[in-house]
Amino acid sequence: MKSIRYLWILALAAVIAAPLPAVAEYPDRPITLIIPLGPGGSHDLHARGITGIISDILGQPMVVRLVPGAGGMKGTSEAAKAKPDGYTILFTHNAFDQLKPQTVDVSFNTLQDFKTIARINFAAPILVARADQPYKTYEEFIAYAKANPGKVNMGHSGVWGPAHIPASQLIKETGIKVNLIPHKGGGPALQALLAGEDQITWIFATQTRPHYLDGKVRVLAVAGDTPLENDKDFKDVPTMAALGYPGVAFTMDRIFLAPSGMNDADLKMLRDSFEQLMDHKSFKRFIGSIGEEVMFMRGEEYDKLRPGRYEAYTDLIKSVSGK
């Protein structure tokens, strides 16, 4: 008897509460931004800047929630399972989106379960060698590695991370044999290079620069097909595509995703807001001060690229595990 009365109260409450969200315009409460990475990385840093500025555009705060673990898959699956109401979105990169889910058991289907809101920029890994090594160019390095199979230690920042992927692509395309050494992140990988443990590695321009200027390292090539035109130090570094290896294509795209099933108007509103963000003065200043660039792509465009890249990674994973 008592429980029926409670039901009545609940039903009444539901009737009173239900129309409210329909009347209010999205977003009417804070949006949670899941980052499947730990504190202190470049995603965290980007997010701390972006969340402070985009709230001006959305009219609601955006709150960062770091969910690291399981190689990014913990946070990603939390976002995939979230209600597609636009109040939980994901800030991730393409390796977590298109590659990693293929290598472990996950409870979601990344291509079906996510829609892209925006790609804000990307960072291209650079092939960086110690200055005391005999090779000065990309071609010389390949020749040296072929003449000395298994002798070169090539460091990377962790399995299927932004250094391991171009390394695997390079090995697949050229057939060289190197000793791949995993490290816990880009910092330790760089430290191993500077200490002389590793002779060559893949790192981003921002981390490479001080050591390049210091004369400790040489830059041999940049992954992908886009030269670093706006970079005064690295604008002449050849791209892998220009060197004849378009398959070494990995660049780390920083992307915002939303769980599929959001209503179209709200998704469009989010996509528009991110496009507006790119022209926001404080955002431009922030991106400039952290040494990055804005390389915006709308979510609709990026979504067209995802299936093709997903398949290219399927082949890459096969070639790596096939050995």
């Binding site: 910092g187 921002t206 001060s289 040494g291």
Partner: peptide
């Protein structure tokens, strides 16, 4: 993690720690 956050604070002011 702690020093990574400090690095972020440096970098956001355009200061790149290094040699």
């Amino acid at each position: 993690n702690v020093t990574a956050i400090l690095l972020g604070a440096f970098v956001a002011h355009g200061i790149r720690p290094g040699p």
